[in-house]
Amino acid sequence: MKKRLSTYLKELEDESIHIMREVAAEFRNPVMLYSIGKDSSVMLHLAMKAFYPAKPPFPLLHVDTTWKFREMIAFRDSEAKRLGVELLVHINEQGVRDGISPITHGSALYTDIMKTESLKQTLAAHGYDAAFGGARRDEEKSRAKERVYSFRNAAQNWDPKRQRPELWHLANTGIKPGESMRVFPLSNWTELDVWTYIYLENIPVVPLYFAAERPVVERSGMLIMVDDDRLPLDPGETPRMERVRFRTLGCYPLTGAIKSDAATLPEIIEELIATRHSERQGRVIDHDQAGSMEKKKQEGYF
């Protein structure tokens, strides 16, 4: 049974819905970037609410790196079917032909080609003038300064010194041909808000968020799940079964699991309240160097 939202969660929900409607009304060709994670689940749920009884007036777009967890792909397809929304999947085929992988090319180059470049390719090819993303300001320091409506030039780059001021609820949505807007309706949500909302609204999420026995290997202090046989094992290395779950989901060779017994939403929420590790710690790409997220964002990463 659905539970009542607290005052502040209701306020966050209303704000996100307002932003989505504004984009639907002001842009010619919007798209929602759907990354299959918990934030995307919440964003999609909010979109279903914002335009009810109509369906969201824009498609979902998943930029598939071909290295996502298998359970993520299965979840993606079943959710699109369940909700009756249009789902587009884009893969950087050139990258696939070149055999770009996180294992042989390193996380930085791989992310650039299979995520950043791939995303830019498809946004440009379809002429999308606005793209929703599920990023939250509490995730990382440089994101704390990002606007809800984040202007991108024709090269889809972000200039942190030339951001548009956001006054009241008035969005300056003016863009020229080739330029676009990335829009973050969950800007003001925190990780705890997201999980509490998922719990109260009964929103489906990928099962990888819940603790289960999974085959893992340890790499530079991170627990990497062996999701398929593409992950090369060192001589003598054998995956061991551990009770783990994921706080954040991405490409499986780059996403660290945490040891946990939290197998239900309330257990995840309790764990989150007790935990002292921020969620992006499980992401290899954030630690390339100090300020690395900001650099990726300027180049066009979400």
Binding site: S260, T264, E267, E270, A274, T275
Partner: peptide
């Protein structure tokens, strides 16, 4: 391993 601190309530 992260453990949830127990309380008088039965379940999470």
């Amino acid at each position: 391993r992260l453990r949830v601190v127990g309380s008088e309530k039965d379940s999470a």
